[in-house]
Design a protein around this nucleic acid. Sequence first.
DNA 1: TTATTAATTCGTCAACTGACGACAAAACGA
DNA 2: TCGTTTTGTCGTCAGTTGACGAATTAATAA
Lengths: 231, 231
Amino acid sequence: MQARSMTKEGSSKVGGAGSKPGSPQGAVRMPFNERRAQILDVASDFFAENGLAGQTRQLAEKCGISQRLLYRFFPTKEDLLREVYNQEILGAFKAVWFVELQDRSQPVSVRLEAFYRDYLQSTLTRKWLRLFLYASLAEANMAPDYIAAIITQLLEVVMREVAHEKGVVLPADPALLREMAWTLHGAISHYAIRRHIYQSSLSLSEDQVVSMHVRLFVAGFADMIDACRGD
Amino acid sequence: MQARSMTKEGSSKVGGAGSKPGSPQGAVRMPFNERRAQILDVASDFFAENGLAGQTRQLAEKCGISQRLLYRFFPTKEDLLREVYNQEILGAFKAVWFVELQDRSQPVSVRLEAFYRDYLQSTLTRKWLRLFLYASLAEANMAPDYIAAIITQLLEVVMREVAHEKGVVLPADPALLREMAWTLHGAISHYAIRRHIYQSSLSLSEDQVVSMHVRLFVAGFADMIDACRGD
DNA sequence: TTATTAATTCGTCAACTGACGACAAAACGA
DNA sequence: TCGTTTTGTCGTCAGTTGACGAATTAATAA
């Protein structure tokens, strides 16, 4: 994120700020790792906006460097995409969530609200969602599917915690349990999709929306479980 | 990508493989409107799978015709895409839903379940979702935004009907009301996304999932509204 | 049959696009 | 100051890709 400033300069066309008076052409020199990091940073935004089919020449321009230079850091475009994916998609999940969600000194609805607020802010961002959707649609197997595993864990924790506070005994079928937690998790994810992908104009604040969803989930929890037992 | 040995024999008609002994190359002749319809049909599948950036040559091959022929029916690729969009996306909404959802001779949960089952089957299909997402991501303004208007209507009907049956007085703010209905509508939409885009393996039946969501919504309805009044 | 019309293909252009070999120049060390 | 290392660019190749003029062939009418 602090690379932001660099990105700006880069996008402002190298010499734009008159950095080097005599620099006839060419980007400002940068050490290998720094340049590589800058490229990744710009690339994540770039591919999120333009899709994985975004062109390397355009990306290079946004970085303020020549297209050829990209290939000094990444053997192929696919390698670059994979790196972006690993950094931006997989890096967006926090381990603390598991701890906080299970901190029973707080009511479960408070924990859920806190978690989903943070989740919306740090993970379900425009950049993350767009990259993830582009990758999913392309069926690009950029990385082993850690995400599914992480979310599965989250869903199980959510169910366990709510059930505990409500004194409800959960059904045994783990698939059923996960699907139940998805009623909450999916609704909030879809809210983010509406916001960032469908560009809907949403007038309510994120906080309001989150508490609405959590409230509904907690309130209908026991009933939902009863219904499924009947099935 | 192996060239389908039989390009499109599969597409019914068009005579079996060696249709005409003497026809060295070239597709079976078809009247204008029929051919046009066939192209649109194949194209909707094609672009749903390969994205709006799918190539015309590949599409033509799937249709069993030359690439040039496409341009006899559609001036540009964009025109073709627009047609596909109008036909497949906008054509997937049924007017009966509004009637059935308001048929108070049935309990609202029954109506909701019936509606969402049908909605999942007829609208939230793999083809529809993929086309819609590709178009949304590309910010391709293929058509005036009828969809938002249709769904807004649906959401309002849902809220009105549930509130009526539960004897609950609804808040005035229409934006808030819509957002509430989205807790159900979004959760089900997201279920479809998981199924068709993320390719998750979902073990529960669609019917089970729908009743779960509806149950949760109806059960937590009053509580959710109370909470929002407090806000 | 023959003329006419409509369906269909061939071949090609120009702009793009990922990739890379060869070379220029800034930074660095002694 | 000079040579070496490292960052960076130029130019280009080969394969795509949307688009279209012109020729070809099947169906239909006369």
